[in-house]
């Protein structure tokens, strides 16, 4: 059974159509890169999968079932802008996640927090931009969710921490879990990717197994992206 199935998904904001009938599915254990220029519909797609928006048409099917409750229970979502409360401490933010999300693993968070050097007593508001990004990512990855959705997780993260975070993305995953990830830093992300979906103007222009695409084009995913979305 596919873990995630997207069926003819459409999303309209007033007169603007952000997604125009997107269809794809993801098998268990895959890391999928959603790539595309600004305004291509990446964030809208991720928000629909996370159950934060309602589709104009089409369905998001998770593990054979639909409904927003199912999405909230099974999808861990990291937004492109931090959603944490600035007055909460690092430890307090973890406690909020433990209370709000049944699949949150405090032990996994503690390991990641320690390796990133985040002080438990530090207030979110006092952390650097990169620090907040790291904390948000650590909290999201500490959920043992079936689907992890990461919207630009490397934005504002320095090169040193980037490696640790990329490692963290796949380290604690359930064997049946999938990861959907967007980033403009494709070269950093490329070693992680099993599948690639390229979007432009709300439509899929190219998708497939990352290894097969590299073999077919004789290029890296980053260069395929440049070639396909520049044309």
């Amino acid at each position: 059974m596919t873990t995630l199935s997207i069926q003819m998904l459409r999303k309209r904001y007033g007169t603007k159509e952000a997604l125009r009938g997107v269809t794809f599915s993801v098998e268990p254990g895959r890391v999928v890169g959603i790539l595309g220029p600004n305004g291509s519909g990446k964030t809208t797609l991720l928000k629909l999968i996370a159950g934060l928006l309602t589709p104009t048409d089409g369905e998001v099917i998770v593990d054979g079932g639909t409904g927003r409750g199912r999405l909230h229970e099974n999808v861990a979502y990291l937004p492109d802008a931090p959603s944490l409360y600035p007055w909460a401490s690092v430890a307090g933010s973890a406690e909020q996640h433990r209370r709000l999300f049944a699949d949150f693993d405090p032990g996994a968070f503690e390991d990641m927090r320690a390796s990133l050097g985040l002080e438990p007593s530090a207030k979110v508001g006092s952390l650097s931009k990169g620090g907040v990004e790291q904390l948000g990512l650590a909290l999201t990855l500490s959920r043992r969710a079936l689907i992890t959705v990461l919207d630009e997780p490397l934005l504002g993260v320095d090169m040193h921490a980037r490696g640790e975070l990329l490692h963290g993305i796949v380290r604690g995953l359930r064997p049946d879990a999938i990861v959907l990830i967007t980033s403009h830093l494709i070269s950093d992300l490329e070693p992680l990717l099993d599948d690639v979906i390229m979007l432009r103007d709300g439509e899929i222009v190219l998708s497939g197994d990352a290894e097969e695409l590299r073999a077919k084009y004789g290029l890296t995913v980053e260069n395929i992206y440049r070639q396909e979305l520049a044309s």
């Binding site: 909230h72 999808v75 937004p79 959603s83 709000l100 999300f101």
Partner: peptide, 12 residues
């Protein structure tokens, strides 16, 4: 606003 993912994302 910005806290919507935390508020809406929870299955509470």
């Amino acid at each position: 606003g910005r806290h919507a993912p935390l508020e809406f994302g929870s299955a509470v």
